[in-house]
Every structure is written in structure tokens, then in C-alpha cells.
């Protein structure tokens, strides 16, 4: 591979661009200067840190390490899903619902991809497993967060309509069926859009990275297609699971709408 290694000087020069932007936003009184600087420092520190972790994992290939890092990534993603909700579910459900759905969809899809499709030896080779799982989690997280947000918002807004149906003897699942469908759609729309726009409007980041790192474009494209399909499946299944769990949790065993199970903002 004809990869050009970046020096500390190269990175410093790009950092100067950010500093220039910071000075400009200070002069324009945009009020984002502080955030911009902090974010730039965070990205440097966080990425360097993950770089060292990845370096360690690549040099010490072990299923136990992989399981541990996967679990940590999953838990952070689960926390992020909850943090993105205006009205998360109370108690352990708020965290558990997103985490369980993500676990079921991303881990299964990633496992299939690693063992059946990529089929490296060993199948958990970190160079493949970690980026794959990371991309899966990142996208599935967005889908699930959007789906659950739509579900809980709509249930709150349409409380009287839902209860009117309950009063007529509809079950909770019947009463929320339109909202449930809509929420599942909401979660899937971003990945459908990015598949539709890929290559025409946007060059996907992973592919761009591979090409920058010296891969032949067609190889990079094949990987990107693989990733897109995996993400679509992971996001779709994850969103469906999360919205089903979420809508069940909105009703109790006597089919009463239980908005009190959501946190008030």
C-alpha cells in the first residue's frame, strides 16, 4: 500500500485552520469559540486514545479483549440512545430497551458478517471486527433513538386518540398501530436516504478513508456496499425491536396507556 504517513507537523498545520476559525468566530461574537476549541481538543485526545487501544488490541488478539471492548461500546451506545430522548422510559427500561435492541441486531448482524462473509482467521480479528461493530452501533443507535423518540412523542401528543380507542375495546397494540409503524419508518429513513444518495451526493466516509489510505477504489467500493447493507439490516431490525419493546411498555397488563412510565422533561 502506498499510504502517506502524516507527521505531527501536518496535523499542526490543519490545527492552525481550526485556530483561525476560532479567532474569526470570536471576532463575530458567535459564542461558539469555547465549544469549538474544546471539541477540537476532545477529538484529538479521544481519537489518540482509541488509537492506542486499537494498537494494543491488534497486537494482542484475544476473544476476551474483543468481548470486553464490544460490551463497552454497546453500553456507551445504549446510554447515548437514552440521552437523546426527550422523555425516556423511567428506571432500567430507559437504558435497557435501546441496549437490548442494539445488542440483538448489531451483534447478530456483525457476527454473521465476520464469520460467514469476511471469514478471517480468527473471525474476531480486531482489524475487521472493531470498525465493523463501531459503524453498526453508531448507525443503529441513531435509528433506534429516532424511532423511540417518535414513539414516545406521538404517544404523548395523541393520548386522547389512543385512549378513545382503548375505551371502545381496542387493545393497546391496535390503538398504537399507526404510531408504531410511523416510528419504525422514522428510524429507517436515514439509512434508506444515505443508501440512495451514496456515491452521487456523498462519498461515504469509510470508502473515502480506504481510498486515502491507498486501497484500489473498486475494493473500497465493495467494502462500502457491504457496510451499507449491514448497516441497513442492523438499523432496520434494531429499530423494529426497540419500537415493539417500547410500545409494549406504554401499556400495562390491563391495556391502560401508561405515560407515567416516561420521564417528564
Amino acid at each position: 500500500m502506498n499510504m502517506i504517513s502524516l507527521s505531527a507537523l501536518d496535523l499542526s498545520m490543519t490545527a492552525l485552520l481550526v485556530v483561525a476559525l476560532a479567532i474569526l468566530s470570536l471576532r463575530l461574537q458567535l459564542g461558539v469559540t469555547r465549544q469549538l476549541i474544546i471539541a477540537a481538543i476532545r477529538t484529538t485526545v479521544q481519537l489518540l486514545l482509541i488509537g492506542y487501544i486499537l494498537k494494543f488490541l491488534f497486537e494482542n488478539v484475544h476473544l476476551g479483549y474483543m468481548a470486553a471492548i464490544s460490551l463497552i461500546m454497546l453500553l456507551f451506545a445504549g446510554r447515548e440512545v437514552m440521552a437523546r430522548q426527550t422523555h425516556p422510559y423511567k428506571g432500567l427500561w430507559g437504558f435497557g430497551m435501546g441496549t437490548v435492541s442494539m445488542f440483538l441486531s448489531t451483534f447478530i448482524v456483525t457476527l454473521i458478517a465476520l464469520t460467514v462473509i469476511i471469514n478471517n482467521d480468527p473471525w474476531y480479528t480486531p482489524q475487521y471486527a472493531i470498525p465493523l461493530l463501531g459503524m453498526m452501533l453508531g448507525n443503529t443507535m441513531t435509528g433506534i433513538a429516532l424511532g423511540l423518540e417518535r414513539l414516545t412523542q406521538a404517544a404523548r401528543e395523541q393520548r386522547t386518540q389512543i385512549e378513545a380507542r382503548l375505551m371502545l375495546g381496542h387493545s393497546g397494540m391496535q390503538a398504537i398501530t399507526d404510531i408504531r409503524r410511523q416510528s419504525m419508518r422514522y428510524g429507517m429513513i436515514p439509512i434508506i436516504n444515505s443508501m440512495a444518495a451514496a456515491g452521487i451526493v456523498s462519498l461515504p466516509g469509510m470508502m473515502t478513508g480506504q481510498i486515502l489510505a491507498g486501497s484500489p477504489p473498486l475494493e473500497a467500493v465493495k467494502y462500502q456496499i457491504l457496510i451499507m447493507f449491514l448497516i441497513a439490516a442492523g438499523t432496520g431490525f434494531g429499530t423494529v425491536i426497540a419500537v415493539v419493546l417500547g410500545s409494549k411498555r406504554l401499556f400495562d397488563e390491563r391495556e391502560r396507556l401508561r405515560l407515567d412510565r416516561l420521564r417528564s422533561s
Partner: peptide, 19 residues
């Protein structure tokens, strides 16, 4: 079963809702 109960015991809310 609660759906059966609510069909037998019909509640008319003060404001009607339509979905």
C-alpha cells in the same frame, strides 16, 4: 379480558377523539 370489559362497559369521554 380488558378489551371485552370495555366493550361491555362503554365510556363516552367529554370530548370525542378521532384517529
Amino acid at each position: 379480558p380488558v378489551t371485552e370489559w370495555r366493550r361491555k362497559v362503554g365510556l363516552l369521554a367529554a370530548d370525542s377523539a378521532w384517529w
